[in-house]
Computed example of a mutant assay.
Amino acid sequence: MATNLILGVVLLLCLAAVAWPFLFYPLILRALPTVAEAPVEGPKPSASLLFCAYNEAAAMPEKLANLAMLRARHPELAILAFDDGSSDGTGDLIAAQDDMVTLVRGPGRSGKAYGMKQLAARARGDVLIFTDANVLLDADAIDNLLARYADPQVGGVLGSLHYIGAEDSATASVGSLYWRIEEKLKDEESRTGNVLGADGSIFSIRRSLYPDFPDSVLDDLTVSMAVVFAGKRLVKAKDVIARERLVTARKDEYRRKVRIAARAWHTHAHLRPQLRRMAALDRFKYASRKIVRWFGGLFILLGAVAAGALAMRLSPALYLAGALGAALVIWIGVRAKSGPFAALVDVMIAYAATLQGVAKAMTGRTFTVWNPAQSR
């Protein structure tokens, strides 16, 4: 009886841990008071927009057209790009627009973190705006972003990423749903003080806060967290909108999540001394939205083992029925291109990829370079 109780408790704890970032954590955030930004008006700061590219020739015409639109609205906006040794002519396409974009060519494959550091060292704007080569910004994104810096306590501003192509596959659908949840969490974190980290699609910081860091970390997380460590606010602007096409193939998404998770863990190790000095609320946010998720695959595995052991102790027939049912769901999900079973498989794949990435990082494996997904 005692063993059954222990297995039941383990199962419930694992279920709670998996649900924590998506259910319990948001409920806690909603109960916290709002931390208002100071209603300050003043001139908008100068800015430099930075992005890195590797073999993005297919995306460059649309990207360059988007940059031309932004430059027309903001003639003073400096735009800098880093080409990480592209072999498809990406660098040449950017270089052809040298009146609009300052191109820095890398020595070969060096990685995004290295490239962004090169660009940040050359930038001269008061605010550094970071984006990705395959991301498009809405026309008023720069205006709305820079307006938030009127508050001197604001040290960094994130935008909102809207994904395109959610209907193209189950993988894209799950990715879109996950990201909508992520965006809402960031909104609540911003309302209650600080967002705990940015992604690379669209974010910015005051140039004076830009930190130094190794090439093995996630530069977007490292750079954005420097704002929090400096005692400034890292906030999210809903009206600063970036758009990106979703990855539709499972193998592309799996590789991407392994790489990101490994770099995230190296980032965590690099930032650990500063993370420990954060305010208690920020430490709670960081643990809830990042650490608990990184080990979600482990919680699922432990929960499945506990559920199986409990079912076997209660009734071997119940265990057999559960195992066959799970195998059938996975088989249908793997073969399906859409629907709830396919979505469930994609969720499991995402957790497995994240756990694998963290495990690789713990053994010392680093990922400094990247390849664009072919299924965008």
Results as ranks from 00 to 15, higher is better:
225 M>N: 13
111 G>C: 05
343 A>Q: 13
90 T>E: 03
338 S>K: 15
158 L>R: 05
133 A>L: 00
53 A>W: 10
164 I>Y: 04
302 L>N: 04
249 A>G: 09
48 S>G: 10
314 L>E: 11
64 L>A: 04
231 G>A: 03
149 Y>H: 07
13 L>A: 11
329 V>M: 08
297 G>S: 04
257 K>N: 04
314 L>I: 13
174 V>F: 03
107 P>A: 13
164 I>A: 06
179 W>I: 06
247 V>R: 10
138 D>F: 05
261 A>D: 00
129 I>C: 12
241 I>R: 10
255 R>C: 10
8 G>I: 03
50 L>Y: 08
26 P>F: 09
16 A>C: 06
87 S>V: 14
287 A>I: 14
124 R>Q: 15
120 A>D: 03
91 G>P: 02
355 L>Q: 03
80 L>Q: 04
201 S>E: 15
90 T>Q: 03
84 D>T: 03
328 L>P: 07
307 A>D: 03
295 F>D: 02
77 L>I: 11
169 S>Q: 10
3 T>I: 14
289 R>C: 10
372 P>M: 04
185 L>S: 06
80 L>W: 04
83 D>Y: 01
165 G>K: 06
259 R>S: 14
208 S>E: 15
176 S>C: 13
371 N>P: 00
91 G>D: 05
4 N>L: 14
369 V>W: 06
330 I>K: 00
324 L>R: 07
57 A>Q: 11
307 A>M: 09
302 L>F: 06
251 K>G: 08
27 L>G: 11
169 S>D: 11
316 P>A: 03
228 V>A: 13
166 A>H: 14
323 A>Y: 02
287 A>K: 01
269 A>C: 14
365 R>V: 15
153 Q>E: 14
15 L>E: 13
18 V>E: 06
364 G>W: 02
343 A>M: 12
35 V>R: 14
375 S>R: 09
352 A>E: 01
4 N>V: 00
262 A>V: 01
67 L>C: 05
131 T>K: 07
184 K>N: 14
49 L>Y: 09
27 L>V: 07
269 A>E: 15
357 G>E: 02
293 R>V: 09
93 L>M: 15
254 Y>L: 09
304 A>E: 01
264 A>V: 07
18 V>F: 00
316 P>V: 01
327 A>N: 09
80 L>V: 05
203 F>T: 07
66 N>E: 10
169 S>P: 12
341 F>E: 11
111 G>N: 07
179 W>S: 12
33 P>M: 10
82 F>T: 02
352 A>S: 08
340 P>E: 06
63 K>E: 03
311 A>P: 00
249 A>F: 08
190 S>N: 02
230 A>I: 05
155 G>N: 03
323 A>T: 06
230 A>R: 04
101 V>R: 12
341 F>N: 07
197 G>P: 03
106 G>L: 01
176 S>N: 15
56 E>R: 14
158 L>P: 05
367 F>G: 03
34 T>V: 15
171 T>A: 05
272 R>G: 00
